[in-house]
Simulated assay, not measured.
Amino acid sequence: MIEITPIEVQEKLKMNKTIHLIDVREVDEVKERKIAQAIHIPLGLLEFRMHELDKDIEYTMVCRSGGRSGRAVQLLEAHGFKVVNMVGGMNDWEGPVE
């Protein structure tokens, strides 16, 4: 599993590099705070919404601490997607939120 740290994600965003973030946390967690660029797809719905994603794009998965996003990475990799896990998740995120 490929991993990236929250600091590395923040650096990419600061440099205006294209990064496709998917937040797999639950609705109530996302309401508290979310990375502005992230698309919200709860982990429980990810399998049913995979058709919305493009296999030619690399996605970075985000959750609270890195566990659920790790499971999301495994699911998507098994279906041929290019995915990266943001280790530490929102617990370690120090960048801007909405």
Rank of each mutant, 00 (worst) to 15 (best):
I2Q: 09
I2M: 13
E3L: 03
I4D: 11
T5Q: 04
I7G: 11
I7K: 13
I7M: 15
E8G: 01
E8D: 08
Q10V: 06
E11N: 12
E11T: 06
K12I: 00
K14A: 14
M15I: 05
N16L: 01
N16E: 06
K17S: 00
T18F: 07
T18S: 12
H20I: 09
L21S: 09
D23R: 01
V24R: 00
R25H: 08
R25Q: 08
E26Y: 08
E26A: 14
E26L: 13
E26G: 11
V27A: 13
V27I: 15
V27N: 13
V27M: 11
D28W: 15
E29M: 06
V30G: 06
E32W: 00
R33D: 08
R33I: 10
I35G: 01
A36T: 12
Q37N: 02
Q37E: 12
Q37L: 05
Q37P: 02
Q37T: 10
A38H: 01
A38D: 00
I39K: 02
P42K: 06
L43P: 02
G44C: 00
L46V: 05
L46T: 06
L46R: 01
E47D: 14
E47P: 09
E47A: 13
F48I: 09
F48Y: 07
R49Q: 01
M50C: 06
M50G: 05
E52F: 09
E52A: 14
L53K: 06
L53I: 12
D54M: 14
D54E: 10
K55I: 05
D56S: 03
I57H: 07
E58A: 13
Y59D: 07
T60V: 03
T60F: 00
T60G: 02
T60N: 05
M61H: 03
V62L: 12
C63S: 08
R64H: 12
S65C: 05
G66L: 10
G66T: 07
G66Y: 05
G66F: 03
R68P: 03
R68F: 05
S69L: 08
S69P: 03
S69I: 05
S69V: 07
G70K: 04
G70T: 05
R71N: 15
R71K: 15
R71Q: 15
A72I: 04
V73S: 12
V73A: 13
V73N: 11
Q74K: 14
L75H: 03
L75A: 10
L75N: 07
L75Q: 08
L76H: 02
E77Y: 06
E77Q: 14
A78H: 12
A78D: 15
H79P: 09
G80E: 10
F81C: 13
F81L: 13
K82Y: 07
V83S: 10
V83I: 12
V84D: 02
N85A: 08
N85W: 03
N85E: 08
M86T: 04
M86V: 09
V87T: 03
V87N: 01
G88T: 00
G88M: 03
G89F: 02
G89R: 02
M90A: 04
M90H: 03
M90E: 07
N91I: 00
D92N: 15
D92W: 11
W93R: 02
W93F: 06
G95D: 14
G95H: 14
G95L: 14
E98A: 09
E98K: 11
E98W: 08
